[in-house]
């Protein structure tokens, strides 16, 4: 059983990827298979980047038990006005700066959904966005 919580600041491009690297390292130590490791790492990186780029800051929680790896993210806003639209491949509101750094393909949320075994997103304007994704341990 592993539990970890990571605080992620808005606009923290300098440390982008650090949380995902740590999650990947922890799972590797637990002996999680390479394929699952990759799916979790891709998803956590997308999660982490969305908090940095689009939100006012938030947290990612990692939980691992015998059956499931769970990533839960929660941010402090501004929320997603139309979640269905945001889930579409290619939809992005990322600005010029983010695009110049290599973000804004509009593939992050679809990537998470496709890689995970279960995907849940809940967003409320002003309150923020919560995403829960799980991966079955094999």
């Amino acid at each position: 059983m592993v539990r970890a919580e990571y605080e992620i600041a808005s606009g923290a491009y300098d440390c982008a990827g650090e949380v995902s690297s740590d999650i990947k390292r922890q799972l590797k130590q637990l002996g999680i298979d390479a394929g699952t490791l990759r799916r979790v790492a891709v998803s956590s990186y997308e999660m982490e980047m969305n908090i940095i780029i689009h939100s006012l800051g938030g947290v990612i929680n990692l939980t691992v038990d015998n059956e499931w790896i769970t990533l839960f993210s929660k941010d402090r806003g501004p929320g997603i006005p139309d979640v269905e639209l945001a889930m579409r491949e290619g939809f992005s509101t990322a600005g010029e700066d983010a695009r110049n750094m290599g973000f804004g393909a509009g593939m992050g949320l679809p990537n998470m959904k496709r890689n995970a075994d279960t995907f849940n997103i809940f967003s409320q304007m002003e309150e923020g966005t919560r995403i829960t994704i799980t991966f079955r341990v094999i």
């Binding site: 891709v42 997308e46 290599g102 973000f103 393909a105 509009g106 593939m107 990537n111 496709r114």
Partner: peptide
Amino acid sequence: SDLMSDALA
């Protein structure tokens, strides 16, 4: 790709 999420996909 010049967009990282494309690579991740």
